[in-house]
Structures are given as structure tokens and as C-alpha cells.
């Protein structure tokens, strides 16, 4: 059983790898076949050369690290704030009732539209970028935590209460652990949104980060540079996402493994 499963996994990993090779080959040669110019789609090799050049000349590592650190900080703060507010509102239905129209309005508002405003407030620093990320990560985390607390089986709460549990015990032993799966769905969404938030902040203003390189490359009509930047941003997003999944697997180790597999 286990061996066969392993075979299946190595088999499909091999498939993915083969697909990557095919994709790179198509990227390298097919646009040229149709005479697509390099400033529209630069071939894979040109993007690689640009990547190497940027490493040497454009402080690519520095910009990548700045963006990564900003994403990390923004995500951590946004997730923390979302959890705190989610649990507080979840514990007091009246506060939720009073605040819900405003929360809904803020949730509907396109968060990236706040980026220029934050730059006007905080200038070309790292703070507006962090703030956009915080704002954009906050909502899915808070909404999921709130929803999780609303849907805890009341019989579970009654079981704890019948055993003479205090309000704090009900929270820490029932509600908090019961909210973990939805919390992690929120964190997964937040991990990818954090990258978007930071990039938009960097696009709008400043002279560091991959978002800045994106605008710079566009200004130079350097398509390969834009490609390199997009790929690196995607890699940052993937790493953030995979890190959340790893944490989720560790925390939710008690769940049947199938329910964790969906990506």
C-alpha cells in the first residue's frame, strides 16, 4: 500500500518535472517560430541572462530580501491583528453586531487602493507597504476566525460547561482549538495576499523592493527584467504559502490526512 503510494508520488513528481522541461523548451523556441519579438516575450535564456546580470548589477538580492522581509512582517502583523480582533468579536456577539456594517464596508473596499494614501501619510518608507499588507491579510484571517467561533458545536460547549468549565476554559479548550482549521484556511489566503499588498505598495512609491524593480524595468522597456521580477515574486508567494501549509500540517496533525491535501 505505502510503497504503491510512494510510487504514485514519485511518478507524478517526475511528470511535473517533465512538464517543466517542456514548458521551458516551448518558451525558448516557440515565440521565435511565430516571430514574436523579444520585447514582447523574451526567450527563457534571455530571462536567465537578465537574472544573472541583475544579481551582479542591480542589487537583486537586496531588493528581494527587502520585499521578503516586508511580506513577512506585514503577514505576521496582519494575521496577529486578524486573530485578536476575530477572537474578541467572536466572544462578544454584541460588539460584532455593532461593528459588522463597518467591517463589511472595509472588507469590500479594495485594500490596494489605500496604498497611495498610506504613502502620502508615511512617505517613501517601508511602513506604507507593511500597512497595505496588514490591511489585506487582516480580513480573511479575521472573517475565518469569526466564522469558526460562530460554528463551534454548541453541544461541545455545553459538554464543557456541564463539567463546570469556566468561560476561559471553554475558550482555550474548545473554541480556540476548534477554530484552527478555518484559521489556517485564512492564513493560506493571507500568505498570498501579503505579497500582493507589498508589491502594490512598492509599485506606488519608493526605490527598493521587487515592486520598484518592476516599475524600473517597465520604464526601461526591459521585458526580461519584468519577467525576472514576476518570477521572483511568485517564488516568494510560493515559499510563504508552503510555510503556512507546513505549519498547518504540524498543528493539525490530528486531522485525517485527506482533509489537508487540498491545495
Amino acid at each position: 500500500m505505502a510503497a504503491r503510494r510512494e510510487d504514485r508520488i514519485t511518478g507524478s513528481a517526475g511528470g511535473s518535472l517533465a512538464l517543466l522541461v517542456v514548458f521551458l523548451a516551448v518558451w525558448e523556441w516557440v515565440p521565435a517560430l511565430f516571430e514574436v519579438p523579444a520585447f514582447i516575450i523574451p526567450p527563457a535564456s534571455a530571462v536567465w541572462d537578465e537574472f544573472v546580470r541583475m544579481l551582479a548589477k542591480d542589487r537583486l538580492i537586496h531588493h528581494t530580501l527587502v520585499t521578503t522581509a516586508t511580506v513577512l512582517v506585514g503577514f505576521a502583523l496582519g494575521a496577529l491583528l486578524g486573530m485578536v480582533v476575530g477572537y474578541l468579536l467572536g466572544m462578544s456577539p454584541r460588539a460584532e453586531f455593532v461593528l459588522s456594517p463597518y467591517i463589511l464596508a472595509l472588507q469590500i473596499a479594495p485594500k490596494v487602493a489605500f496604498a497611495p494614501l498610506f504613502i502620502m501619510w508615511f512617505g517613501y518608507t517601508v511602513y506604507p507597504k507593511i500597512l497595505v499588507a496588514v490591511l489585506i491579510v487582516f480580513f480573511p484571517v479575521m472573517v475565518n476566525v469569526l466564522g469558526a467561533l460562530r460554528s463551534v458545536d454548541p453541544d461541545l460547549v455545553n459538554l464543557a460547561r456541564a463539567f463546570t468549565a469556566t468561560r476561559a476554559q471553554v475558550f482555550w479548550r474548545i473554541e480556540f482549538p476548534a477554530s484552527m482549521p478555518p484559521l489556517f484556511s485564512g492564513l493560506r489566503i493571507g500568505a498570498t495576499l501579503a505579497v500582493i499588498g507589498v508589491v502594490v505598495g512598492e509599485l506606488v512609491g519608493g526605490n527598493t523592493g521587487l515592486g520598484y524593480l518592476l516599475v524600473f524595468g517597465e520604464g526601461q522597456a526591459n521585458t526580461a527584467m519584468v519577467f525576472v521580477t514576476i518570477i521572483l515574486l511568485t517564488v516568494i508567494g510560493i515559499i510563504a504559502y508552503v510555510a503556512v501549509i507546513a505549519l498547518e500540517r504540524w498543528v493539525l496533525h490530528y486531522m485525517p490526512s485527506r482533509s489537508l491535501e487540498t491545495v
Binding site: 458545536d153 453541544d155 461541545l156 459538554l159 464543557a160 456541564a162 463539567f163 463546570t164 468549565a165 476554559q169 479548550r173 474548545i174 482549538p177 476548534a178 484552527m180 493539525l252 490530528y254 486531522m255
Partner: peptide, 29 residues
């Protein structure tokens, strides 16, 4: 603490092992 109830639903906490579930009431006490 003089009563304990049991329902049609087992109400076991999925994040606790069976042993930890059995200890749940004692822990609260």
C-alpha cells in the same frame, strides 16, 4: 460535579487523543 452527561453524538474533541478525551472532565475539575 455530581452529574455527567452523554449524548447521541460522541462529542469527542478531534484534536485530543482518546486518552486525553477521557481525561477532559477530570482536567476541568
Amino acid at each position: 460535579r455530581q452529574v455527567a452527561f452523554m449524548l447521541q453524538k460522541d462529542l469527542l474533541l478531534p484534536w485530543r487523543s482518546i486518552r486525553e478525551n477521557v481525561e477532559f472532565g477530570l482536567e476541568i475539575h
